[in-house]
């Protein structure tokens, strides 16, 4: 357990490391620095830390203005506010003119402490994915988070980063390199492909081990880059395994499952099963309570996979 690290921790520390090298990195905070871990940046670079108060719309506009002067602004808040609250500001002030603004949503999906439905972001990927010019990334673990933040600093354009709150084990290899639009096969398999992102990847890997006992050889893909999505790895999975299951910490409408369906439907139709939150609002509770209530535990996923594959 000791080697589990929260993506938000890696995010906060990576920002400090990159901030030392690059004086153009600035961080905007809508009164959640201790939660999003931009508090580390605040301690290291108080002059480049911009607290805007609980005013997310203004934060996005300020970030847009700063970016026109060559700054690389990271506008940070919870994912629900970073998407729902500021949808128009992100669209018109940032994405339309393709400004170099990084929008960071912390506390993602169902896993938001015990904050419940109002603070759960089950729509953020759907919102961000449908905005032209936006890149959407949900890194899975600390290592990938570091690589993704480095990428975001070097990429000239708007990026939405979905950064998990809770500790994750090491999922990607230590020498992993993030590439825009490229996913990673975590486990090879020929009977079915499980595609997931963020916090659900751990349970999806466990589910793959569980179904193996039933004689099902499942491939597992970490789809951290949700837009642009890795079409080739999806088509290859459809061709080689014939069936795909998506597992996401998001409404099954508009998120990762939808992104995969779009590619498969257009390029290589096969059957797909989407696992996620089935168009309902969440509840207060621990992560384990959420997973149990919304049938997102490894055993729930395994059961769905077994039913789907039909063995």
């Amino acid at each position: 357990m000791s080697d589990r690290i929260a993506p938000r921790e890696a995010f906060g520390k990576t920002l400090v490391r990159l901030g030392e090298e690059n004086p153009n990195i600035v961080v905007l905070d809508a009164d959640l620095a201790p939660s999003t871990k931009t508090s580390y940046f605040r301690e290291s670079f108080p002059q480049r830390f911009i607290p805007v108060g609980i005013a997310e719309q203004n934060m996005i506009g300020i970030a847009a203005g700063l970016s026109t002067l060559g700054f690389i602004p990271f506008a940070t808040t919870f994912a629900c506010f970073a998407s729902r609250r500021v949808c128009d500001q992100v669209t018109v002030s940032c994405a339309y003119p393709r400004l170099n603004v990084k929008i960071v949503g912390g506390y993602v999906g169902l896993f938001v402490g015990k904050n419940g439905a109002t603070h759960q972001a089950l729509e953020d990927i759907a919102i961000m994915r449908s905005i032209a010019n936006m890149v959407v990334i949900e890194p899975v673990d600390a290592t990938e988070t570091e690589r993704v933040i480095e990428f975001a600093c070097n990429y000239d354009g708007p990026v939405y980063l979905r950064i998990g709150r809770d500790p994750m084990p090491q999922i990607v290899p230590q020498d992993y390199k993030f590439q825009l639009g490229r996913a990673l096969v975590l486990r090879e398999g020929k009977d079915v492909t499980l595609i997931s992102s963020g916090a659900m990847v751990e349970d999806t890997l466990k589910a793959a081990s569980l179904v193996e006992k039933e004689g099902i050889d499942a491939r597992v893909i970490n789809m951290s880059c949700i837009k642009p999505v890795d079409e080739e790895i999806i088509v290859k999975a459809a061709e080689e395994t014939g069936r795909i299951v998506t597992v996401e910490n998001h409404n099954i409408i508009g998120g990762l499952g939808s992104a995969v369906c779009e590619v498969v439907a257009e390029r290589y139709p096969v059957r797909i099963k989407r696992i996620g939150i089935r168009d309902v609002f969440g509840k207060s509770g621990t992560n384990e309570e959420m997973k149990a209530k919304f049938k997102l535990r490894a055993e729930d996923i395994a059961k769905e996979v077994i039913n789907f594959v039909g063995r």
């Binding site: 480049r48 506009g61 300020i62 847009a64 018109v92």
Partner: peptide, 26 residues
């Protein structure tokens, strides 16, 4: 200097520019 039209957004962008000017000593 900014893509505008969705009302209410321009002043925030201007704040970002003015703040950026201060940060850069311009």
């Amino acid at each position: 200097e900014a893509s505008t039209g969705a009302l209410g957004q321009g002043l925030s962008i201007a704040v970002g520019m003015a703040l950026g000017a201060k940060l850069k000593g311009k």
